[in-house]
Design a protein around this nucleic acid. Structure first.
Length: 700
DNA sequence: CATTTATAAATTTTT
DNA sequence: TTTATAAATG
């Protein structure tokens, strides 16, 4: 047989690609050709007789799966697209549960809610119970959602999680537990699954007696990428999934685990050989990406960390020069220097496509984005706030979700609150009358039954809240009549039989939503474009249900903020959070804000583990670079709270850039150069020069 | 009494 | 820019 897909693989990669049956753990350092190895293995399996449909490839993003399958298909010279099962754990769970959900009594027409929706439901329950009142310091809705998610994903007890991660909430243990019980009940009633439910239900399905075997039996081979960033539930799923055969390959790097906030645990990768006895381990240590000097710098950052799978990454790429540490006066100078560097590399023939600017938190690039726009440098931003999280998009989707799943309490509530004259109380009453379950029982004051108006449904089994809304709507308060009637007409127009095309539904909803939205937001022209974009995306879908699900499971990640006219057509720069940069590489990488408080983030420093993860984060960022790496350190940060003032504080260089690390860096920057050539900052001469400037007329 | 408006405060990373 | 609380309004 022609083994051409094995050409150009090194011995370790080849071993991983051609390994036979049984558990295989591939420890793959940064840039060691992990994607290629996975793609080749898929190709190898197919060429050796495995049916594509019987391969399951689990990756961190849908994009990564699509890319790998495309490459495998190319290598194996076959059509594997849409045949190999590929995607995220969550997307795969969704697919399987739609199929086999009945086996665990799960209605298969559930809708999926994101974390913000989950938080809203938590909030609803909290307010019903009056738990946030009386000035008690009670966790906010997002905190509640975070605690919940962490608890179920890690499979820990609530009190353990609170003790370890949320100590300040410990005194509210009972109330929190109560909210969580009710939260689960309400999700089931509304027939919605949150992100964690998808995994939990998949695990339940896999572990169930009959259907579990069927699901496991569907796949001859399971391959998992980024295994260091999976959680307990996910590893349970894998174990249950491999009950009929033990063909499983996991690939990961414990030095790159950066998702512990999502309850990912490196125990999964470390304990894999114990969970799957007889595991064969292959280490990929030759780095094809970076120059040796960049690797030296990155390795020195990791040196103090205790890495369990010891690897020694090496590169045969010649090292032209060291990575740079650029000290800047302040953030404005950082922006300026980044832009200059970008353009200098561009002039020397490195297109923007091969350059990236990375940062810890989404808002760290705010100033730079303004500067890029000013200079008309086009860019796409990945990570940070997403399209789907904008309030006006959520409003639109909520209406679609009501149409799709009339029991969806969260969406009803959100939509009713949009109507002027309707607040939380009225919305609750209307929902009660529509028969949307929720606040009905469980210790909460029952929704007021305004006796004469409350309709008792004759045929509750066929009447949904949506039908009731259309045929026998509750009476809204007088000042909300008009808007309420509008909503009713909209819902009616969108739910005719046969259902209108999804784009027409969105158009119709927009018509209803437009006036409300213009009254609500002052920057509506900008937001209006988002609505148009939503409509555009919807055009690619035939089913409303899959549109909504895809939007929550795989939301558009890049805000294509095309700064100005595309001067340098088709070429654009990548701005990305470090998390979203995982698995990517660029010729030139710029890392912003390498200062204590940013990397490591202050928020992460509650415990040692958090600090270590920040270290890995910096490591991940640095190892994205192939040829040139710049770390930027602004000395001063202005406090923007008092908008006018120039109050500022001085930053500390990131604690990870120890003297040992700095030996591998070339230090430069205006400040350094000024110090080298001009008078020392602390000298008498410098003082006099500064004073002398006071006699001079102001340049501005 | 419920809703709207005003004011103050806080703000990581993502499926 | 969003979110919780307090005051004002209908």
């Amino acid at each position: 047989m022609n083994n051409h897909w094995l050409q150009g693989l090194n011995p370790a990669q080849r071993e991983a690609v051609t390994y036979g049956a049984g558990p295989l753990l591939v420890v793959a350092g940064a840039g060691t050709g992990k994607t290629r190895t996975l793609a080749c293995r898929v190709a190898h399996l197919i060429r050796n007789g495995t049916t594509p449909e019987r391969i399951l490839l689990l990756t961190f993003t849908r994009r990564a799966a699509a890319e790998m399958i495309r490459r495998a298909e190319e290598l194996a010279a076959c059509d594997a697209t849409g045949r190999v099962w590929g995607g995220t754990f969550h997307a795969t769970a969704n697919r399987l549960l739609r199929h086999y959900g009945q086996a665990i009594d799960l209605p298969t027409d559930f809708t999926v809610i994101d974390e913000a929706d989950a938080a809203d439901l938590m909030n609803l329950i909290r307010n019903e119970r009056g738990l946030g009142d009386r000035g008690r310091r009670f966790p906010r809705k997002q905190t509640l959602a975070a605690i919940y998610s962490r608890t179920v994903s890690a499979g820990d007890k609530l009190d353990a999680v609170l003790k370890r991660q949320f100590t300040w909430c410990l005194h509210e243990f009972d109330a929190i537990a109560e909210i969580f019980v009710e939260y689960t009940r309400r999700k089931r009633e509304a027939n919605v699954l949150d992100y964690d439910d998808l995994l939990l239900a998949w695990r339940t399905l896999c572990e169930s007696a009959g259907a579990g075997e069927t699901v496991a039996g569907r796949f001859d081979h399971v391959l998992v990428d980024e295994y260091q960033d999976t959680n307990r539930v996910q590893s349970d799923i894998l174990r249950a999934l491999r009950r009929s055969n033990r063909n499983i390959m996991v690939v990961g790097d414990d030095a790159q685990s950066i998702y512990s906030f999502r309850a990912a645990t490196i125990r999964n990768i470390l304990d894999f050989p114990d969970q799957f006895p007889g595991t064969h381990i292959v280490k990929l240590e030759e780095n094809y990406r970076s120059t040796q000097t960049i690797l030296d710098a990155a390795n020195s950052v990791m040196a103090p960390a205790r890495e369990r799978f010891t690897k020694s990454l090496w590169s045969s790429r010649p090292s032209r020069h060291k990575a740079s540490l650029v000290t800047c006066l302040d953030e404005a100078e950082q922006c300026r220097i980044v832009c200059e560097r970008l353009l200098r590399h561009l002039e020397r023939g490195v297109p923007l496509m091969r350059q990236a600017v990375l940062f810890r938190a989404g808002h760290h690039s705010d100033q730079l984005e303004v500067e890029l726009a000013r200079r008309k440098i086009p860019f796409h931003k990945f990570g940070g706030l997403k399209f789907i999280e904008a309030a006006h998009i959520k409003d639109m989707i909520a209406i679609l979700r009501i149409l799709e799943n009339p029991g969806d309490e969260i969406s009803w509530f959100r939509v009713l609150l949009l109507l002027p004259g309707i607040g939380a109380k009225t919305a609750g009453r209307i929902m009660g009358e529509l028969g949307v379950r929720g606040g009905g029982d469980g210790g909460a004051p029952p929704a007021k039954e305004n006796g004469e108006r409350h309709r008792r449904p004759r045929a509750a089994s066929v009447t949904t809240p949506l039908k009731r809304m259309i045929d026998a709507p509750p009476r809204p308060p007088a000042d909300a009549r008009r808007a309420f009637e509008d909503l009713r007409a909209t819902l009616k127009d969108c739910s005719t039989q046969p259902a209108p095309p999804i784009v027409s539904q969105i158009e119709r909803i927009c018509e209803f939503y437009r006036p409300l939205f213009e009254a609500r937001y002052d920057n509506h022209p900008m937001r209006l474009r988002d609505l148009e974009q939503l409509e555009q995306i919807a055009g690619r879908y035939r089913s409303r249900g899959s549109f909504i699900t895809d939007l929550t499971l795989d939301p558009p990640t890049s805000t294509s903020e095309l700064a100005g006219a595309p001067y340098l057509d088709e070429d654009w720069l990548t701005l990305s959070t470090i998390h979203s940069a995982k698995g990517c590489e660029w010729q030139v990488v710029h890392i912003l804000h390498v200062a204590d408080g940013m990397i490591p983030s202050d928020m992460a420093l509650v415990d040692d583990e958090g600090a270590e993860e920040e270290r890995r984060l910096l490591y991940v960022a640095m190892t994205r670079a192939k040829d040139d790496l710049y770390l930027y350190f602004p000395l001063r940060y202005y406090h923007r709270k008092h908008a006018a003032g120039d109050a500022h504080s001085y930053a500390q260089l990131s604690r990870f850039l120890t003297p040992d690390v700095r030996r591998h860096l070339h230090e430069q920057g205006a400040v350094i150069e000024a110090l080298a050539t001009g008078p020392r900052a602390g000298s008498i001469r410098a003082m006099d020069e500064k004073t002398n400037r006071q006699w001079m007329p102001d340049a501005n």
